[in-house]
């Protein structure tokens, strides 16, 4: 049984699937940390349910990556589990936004809102992918993210337009998270190749619609869009914040210390 860090042959298709899968897994894991800690039982269940949706989406995307990855030199093939449990920080390709520590309930909601307002129209557009398997994953995911967006939008408005204290906390959450949103719309050469084949859409094409959704909700929430245009990037190429290491240490502890353990 293997406990060592795996190597991954990152062809453009594999890299793409891992990026989307890592976003979903890491954000899903962050939400799972809220289980038992949300302000009320209803919100506890909501956050756990959203996390469950994301981890389910991650599984489908990892399975796709495994299918598309050329087999390794020693004949082994990677699986959903080896991608999740046996890659180290530098091999993770998720957005920095997804790995940021939870903070208070307001920040958890704001992070989920900013992401959902992007990923919901993204998956909807991806339903037209020339790749039948990606289109199927998109079709499934989009139904789920539509609920995530509605749920988080309602909370952003409720808290932003709530008490002075909740308003200030939401504004602070927005200021904290804002510089991590730019990375969602980036593309690179690997993705450009897949775009040329019609397999994936250009994420930057989502930006204007995202901005409109965010502005609409923030207006109703009496919150102010930050002016700063500077954006922090690095997650897509494996340059992460220190927070991801702690997250992986917890998530990977069991499979690393008990190799081959099964349910």
């Amino acid at each position: 049984m293997v406990t060592n860090t795996i190597s991954v042959s990152e062809t453009p298709q594999v890299l793409y699937a891992l990026r989307r899968a890592d976003d979903a897994l890491i954000l899903g894991h962050r939400l799972s940390e809220c289980c038992g800690h949300a302000p009320t039982l209803e919100e506890d269940m909501a956050l756990a349910n959203i996390g469950l949706d994301l981890i389910g989406q991650a599984r489908a995307l990892y399975a796709l990556a495994a299918l598309r990855e050329p087999s390794l030199e020693d004949g082994r093939a990677n699986t959903e589990d080896t991608y999740a449990y046996l890659r180290d920080v530098g091999q993770y390709r998720n957005l920095l936004l997804c790995e940021l520590p939870n903070g208070d309930f307001g920040r958890i909601i704001m992070r989920q809102f900013l992401y959902s307002a992007f990923i919901d129209p993204y998956w909807r557009a991806m339903m037209k992918s020339s790749d039948a398997q990606l289109a199927a994953i998109a079709e499934k995911a989009e139904k789920e993210t539509a609920y995530h967006l509605r749920y988080t939008s309602e909370w952003v408005i409720r808290l932003g337009d709530g008490t002075p204290k909740s308003h200030d906390r939401m504004q602070a959450a927005l200021e904290f998270l804002w510089s991590y949103t730019g990375e969602m719309f980036d593309t690179d050469e690997a993705e450009a190749m897949l775009q040329a084949e019609g397999m994936i859409i250009d994420a930057s094409a989502i930006h204007d619609g995202w901005r409109t959704t965010v502005q609409t909700i923030l207006d109703r929430a009496t919150l102010t869009l930050p002016q700063s245009a500077w954006m922090q990037k690095g997650g897509r190429s494996g340059r992460h914040s220190e927070h991801l290491g702690f997250l992986l240490a917890e998530m990977q502890q069991l499979p690393r210390s008990e190799p081959g353990a099964v349910w």
Partner: peptide
């Protein structure tokens, strides 16, 4: 509606 997400993924409260 009390909660968008209920006792299972497929239900609301």
């Amino acid at each position: 509606r009390l909660a968008e997400f209920g006792s299972t993924s497929c239900k609301a409260l």
